[in-house]
Design a protein around this nucleic acid. Sequence first.
DNA 1: CACACGTGGGC
DNA 2: TGCCCAAGTGT
Length: 317
Amino acid sequence: MDKEPYHIWISEIMLQQTQVETVIPYYERFLSALPTVAALANADEAVLLKLWSGLGYYSRVRNMQKAAIQIMTEHGGVFPSTAKDLQTLSGIGPYTAAAIASISFGEVVPALDGNMFRVFARLLKIDADIAQPSSRKLFYTRILPIVDPVRPGDFNQAIMDLGTSLMRAKAETKSESPFARFNLSFQDGTELTYPIKSKKVKQIPKFYAAIISETSGALAYEQRPKTGLLANFWTFPLLEFDSWDAIYDGVSAQYPDAKQLTISPVTHLFTHQKWQVMLVQVDKIEEKWTYLTDEAYDVLPQTTLQLKLQAALKEMQ
DNA sequence: CACACGTGGGC
DNA sequence: TGCCCAAGTGT
């Protein structure tokens, strides 16, 4: 099995909040383009974002490059080998540090991710709210003595496998399961109430006009701010309004010739926002917009939102 | 501590 | 549709 820390690191970061099936092609492509820590440290941001386009949580790849630079400059190009040292790197928190330390270097630490929280909350009936950061210490203390001292990496991966197979969030243990006799919550019928998790984020509705402005075969784009949501990505110019109904009149006030291109909104969900976007064509050419041909645009990193807007525009034509 | 930060899939 | 889930970290 591949235990190369650079490889484990990339896969663990990609797998944060992301399904295995989604990650595989990204992983192969990333490793081919940037095979070493040094290559990652020296890569252009546009190359990084292009390799990550569509994966989401784009700060992950920016932090990976920061960490690669840290490894080259502060660690002489040698990958840190303990969970404690790994956690000093950008984008590496307690979970990823433990995963790399146990898998690549054999350190005996539990890699506490969503799966491990769920598996042990059920097996041991741990009532702590996993949405509370303070609960991590309690789980860590309970699980540490259980980690296989000889094969900690295999232990961590096995627990995660258990969490994605027999002990998925909505899967109940069957009485013939070999795990039934270890599973306290199964024995008293409370399994699906674990893990205890309080947090619920609501998605705030947002309304935008996406401006379609064309001149000599090129369309208008804007680069998003360098911090915040979809930082530095290129999208059609976006104007925000308070409601869906306010969009068309609002755009018309600035651009009297505005033409509404979409009847129903292009919708896009983020973790905490729900966007509804109307495509609006205008004749005016604004200096603040950057006009790019399709060829020039295609080499830039694109978000899934922008791909949806492009697809909707193409359907109009 | 609470919240920002993407995307895709299941029901 | 709306809500939950999926290999978290930074601020």
